[in-house]
Design a protein around this nucleic acid. Sequence first.
DNA 1: GAATTCCTACCCCTAAGAGGGGATTCGCTC
DNA 2: GAGCGAATCCCCTCTTAGGGGTAGGAATTC
Lengths: 207, 207
Amino acid sequence: MPRDITCLIVDDHEVVREGLRLSLSRAAHIRVVGEASDGASAVALTERRRPNVVIMDVRMPGMDGLQATREINEKVPETSVLLFTAHNERSLLGRGLEAGAKGYILKEAPHQTLLRAIEKVAEGEGYVDPALMPTFLNSRDKEDMLTTREREILQLLADGMSNVEVATRLFISQETVKSHVRHILAKLEADTRTHAVAIALRESIID
Amino acid sequence: MPRDITCLIVDDHEVVREGLRLSLSRAAHIRVVGEASDGASAVALTERRRPNVVIMDVRMPGMDGLQATREINEKVPETSVLLFTAHNERSLLGRGLEAGAKGYILKEAPHQTLLRAIEKVAEGEGYVDPALMPTFLNSRDKEDMLTTREREILQLLADGMSNVEVATRLFISQETVKSHVRHILAKLEADTRTHAVAIALRESIID
DNA sequence: GAATTCCTACCCCTAAGAGGGGATTCGCTC
DNA sequence: GAGCGAATCCCCTCTTAGGGGTAGGAATTC
């Protein structure tokens, strides 16, 4: 029989933290060793308490969950991060795993599933919510096929910049920007740049 | 001394419902009489249980919280709806109140504040999270100053339509669409239609 | 009944975007 | 070292968007 699994809860919403605490208090072998409401304090607390698992929300004010995951992986590699996020943020899965998360589970999951995910992740295994598999295979490659440069340009388009303005900002020619935009439209199957930005915002490819 | 306040919890996330149940179980005078995870069953349950207060999430699959609020107000006017939503959905405040919600509170609020909001709303008074006042005065008017027609057009732009396509869809002339777009850009202080769509998506003015 | 707002529609003009072609350099992989 | 993808740049044409003004009819508000 192994020791208790120690957990850190990270979420900016009071109720979600309460709900998690309640869910986890029902499992005898799981112990909550701390709570944080933003990325920066999550990293700091993880360094101090060294929990087995960090249950991490993705969207948070200040440092977000992805950045916090990266830092935790770097500074406290023996701690596993389980991302815990909402339905409409599914497309963050890819970037979450890239950031070094060991698991990914949706907030609507029943707590039995949550407990199983925590156990898996604590053992060092990966866990991805089964409900996410379809998205993982479909829309995931959408953002994935965009290069970093293309994503960068898409982000600037979303801020209202014209091709010329983007070119000036990135120190490249307008023609290059046009090339990139054409590629973006093709990859996202968008009709116009406006459509591309809408798709990207909805899929959380850009912010 | 009045009777207990009866509450219905509506949220699509298991943990949030658990958190709310826990929060409310600490208050002796509040009784949870049901839970729902989507708008349609929220309306049905409200009709059957007739709670004093419905604590309602806004973003849900299927019928959303705003539509559910409208129907509850129509069918069970003696029940007060308290909208309970995340930080990044602040701009829904305006439409929430329009839909007939009596109160609006953020998910990050400490539970003391939540309890106070429930009491206020149960007494028939309004309650708006103080943290929302600045947004209420600033960005609020942004979406509010858009007419329904303008919002409709903005939505179509977000789906990648050109002026001509929008005109065809709405059975109006292209010139009219251009007029509307110009007004939208001015009102949202956007540089391009792409920028306008990005702003609208971020502020949840459109989907 | 006057004023306002909204939706509608037209004019003009310049600037920007979209779609097609091709080409180079760099670094990586097979 | 051939092939590939990414990033860069340039050519062309044609359509679309953006910004300005004006204005009528309907509904609402004062």
